[in-house]
Amino acid sequence: MTAEVAIPARARVGEGPVWDAGARRLHWVDIPAGHIHTSDPVTGRTTSRSLPTQVGAAVPRRGGGFAAATAEGFASVDTDGTATVRLALLPEGERMNDAKCDPGGRLWAGSTALDFARGRGALHVLLPNWTSRVVLDGLALPNGLGWSPDGRTFYLADSVAGEVCAFDTDPGDPVPGVLGRRRTVFRLPGSAGMPDGLTVDAAGCLWIAVWGGDRVVRVSPDGELLAEVPLPVHQPSSCAFGGPGLDVLYVTSAREGLALPQDDPAGSVFAVGGTGAVGLPSTPFAG
């Protein structure tokens, strides 16, 4: 397995990749720049929308445009790029971070303090009627959300804590966002980097970008390290499967905080083929 630049870019903090099967495009963001990018991996061409705020993640909406997790809370982004804050719920000094839709079309997002202070992070779920509630609090830097293929296990990385946790969940529960038994499935010592964004493949294994660790790892649902994919950048930030067969792993990366030459590929999106894995289709936001 080797990683090659698929989308050349100089993102400060590239994040939140999501494959749009209908458009055959990869959507991703640059958090501090407030950019939502839409890229064609075949040509490398990217079109961008600029928001007047930080954007942790953006996912397609069922009716077009995007639902975005922003510095304020949650915003809608029209097809012409107009952004409207629909739910302002975070105090100054905090922002939304990674976000992803569950199979029911609800948007889950982690919030964090700007200094990543322990205990100030939380996990929110946004319902299709644009109301939200806190599902879990007491976190630091919630990241890397995902669900098992049967929807009965929810995964969440807390990067500062250096761990990825699993929670029992019932996809048919009438109260959305209820989490059950919690356990740690993967842990990294600080010297090895931090678990950042992640995706779950069709076999139920986790692919986790290791920020500060120059690699993506594949981990079984029981926490066994199955494979490591080296990256030519120090700060891989997240990953998602895409392509017509959902068999290409796209990995975002970041330049923020690094002294790099102009031609360093950090901030680009990389493609990893030959993994032998297939991803799960993404779900648009139902609101």
Rank of each mutant, 00 (worst) to 15 (best):
R95G: 06
D102Q: 09
P103V: 02
P103Q: 10
P91G: 07
A122E: 14
G110C: 09
F66P: 08
T43P: 05
R49D: 12
A71D: 07
W108A: 06
A109T: 02
L123S: 11
A69D: 10
W108T: 01
G105L: 13
G64L: 05
G104S: 13
A68Y: 04
P103W: 08
A71H: 11
D98R: 07
A109V: 01
T47S: 15
V59E: 11
K100T: 03
D78Y: 03
C101I: 02
G104H: 10
S39V: 01
K100C: 08
G110D: 06
G65W: 03
P103T: 06
P91F: 09
T70H: 03
L123D: 02
L90A: 09
P103S: 14
E94D: 13
P91M: 08
V77D: 06
D40E: 12
A83D: 08
F66M: 11
V77W: 03
K100Y: 03
L123N: 08
L89N: 09
R62T: 00
R45Y: 09
V125W: 06
L87T: 01
R95H: 05
S76E: 13
V77I: 05
G81Q: 10
G44C: 07
C101P: 03
N129R: 09
S111E: 07
N129E: 14
A69W: 08
P128L: 00
G63L: 02
R45M: 13
V85K: 04
S76A: 15
A113T: 04
M96E: 03
K100Q: 14
A122I: 00
R49P: 00
E94G: 03
G44H: 10
T84R: 15
D115I: 00
D40L: 10
G81T: 00
R106G: 04
N129D: 15
P41H: 08
A71Q: 14
V85I: 06
P60D: 00
S76M: 07
P41N: 08
Q54D: 12
L87C: 08
P52E: 12
A69K: 03
W108Y: 13
T53I: 02
P128N: 04
E94T: 14
G119D: 11
L51P: 04
P91E: 09
T70S: 05
V125P: 05
R106Q: 08
V59T: 04
V55I: 04
A122Q: 14
H124Y: 14
D115E: 14
R61T: 00
R49C: 07
R45C: 11
G93N: 10
V42M: 12
E94K: 15
S111F: 12
N97R: 10
W130K: 01
G119I: 00
E92N: 04
A88R: 09
P52F: 11
A57W: 02
